[in-house]
């Protein structure tokens, strides 16, 4: 049988999916054991013990200096920035994207600007943000907004223009004015697509968040990773990276589920 026609069953698909993870863990633990056998104080490839100890210290014990649980503090600080940034970016994308997609006059006026903005490398203007908005929360949130909003705006506008022209004509024959076309036809059909767009933008959003935290911050997941780097504290860095990955997956899946729940017609192929 041709390879393209061979499909795994449910169980074997799960096993096949797990295999690479197990392999990476196996290779890592072998390498780690080897290095630790040579030098018990080795920092480069910490074993499970060192990492659990580090997590215990960061997450479940008060910090000696500040009395805070650092990992939770970092998590809430980062998630707050990410949440505010992505929410602002998505709202902007929705409004500008719909206007651009649905109104030719606005599109002529705004679309070139949005295209140009989406080409600006956001990290290149991070210094400007620090100068203009200071080193506080605002500049970090702004970086996420500037980094993700223009692309989402283009995406939403594109999705609006992909709606069948027949629908646009049809709703006009039902007497709809421009406002009604937007609120009753365009907006409800674009919302699930916006959620998809947000899911794709979360990757870049994390990137900008961690970059901003690494450069100027006093708390946050990115800040912590770059802080402990000075002490080669891989036992903290690795669990933090895994934690960030888990958070990213959970957020992504929550959005996916929300999309399914809120827009049953969309996910059943009704578009």
């Amino acid at each position: 049988m041709r390879m393209i026609n061979r499909h795994p069953g449910r169980v074997s698909a799960t096993l096949l999916g797990l295999l690479p993870f197990l392999l990476i863990m196996l290779i890592y633990s072998l390498a780690s054991q080897e290095r630790l056998a040579e030098n018990p104080n080795d920092k480069l490839l910490p074993g499970l013990e060192q990492m659990t100890a580090a997590v215990d210290r960061m997450a479940f014990q008060e910090d000696r200096r500040s009395g805070d649980y650092l990992m939770w503090q970092d998590t809430t600080a980062s998630l707050q920035r990410l949440g505010i940034g992505v929410t602002i970016a998505a709202s902007l994308a929705l409004v500008i994207g719909i206007l651009n997609g649905a109104l030719p006059l606005i599109r002529a006026n705004l679309a070139p600007l949005v295209s140009a903005l989406s080409m600006v490398p956001p990290l290149a203007i991070l210094p400007i943000l620090f100068i203009v908005f200071g080193l506080g929360e605002l500049s970090k949130v702004m970086l996420i907004v500037i980094g993700t909003a223009p692309i989402m705006m283009r995406d939403v506008a594109q999705r609006v223009r992909e709606l069948p022209g027949e629908q646009l004509i049809k709703i006009q024959t039902l007497g709809a004015n421009t406002w009604q076309v937007i609120t009753r036809m365009v907006l409800p059909q674009v919302l699930p697509r916006l959620i998809d767009s947000v899911r794709l933008s979360l990757g870049p959003a994390w990137l900008f968040l961690i970059a901003a935290e690494a450069i100027a911050s006093t708390e946050g997941l990115g800040y912590r990773i770059f802080l402990v780097r000075r002490y080669l504290a891989m036992d903290v860095i690795l669990p933090y990276v895994i934690w960030i990955t888990i958070l990213a997956i959970v957020i992504d899946q929550c959005l996916r589920l929300a999309n399914r729940r809120l827009f049953p017609w969309y996910n059943a192929g009704g578009h």
Partner: peptide, 10 residues
Amino acid sequence: VFQRYSVFPH
């Protein structure tokens, strides 16, 4: 009434 896409999927 068009051949297709005349109703609103949402």
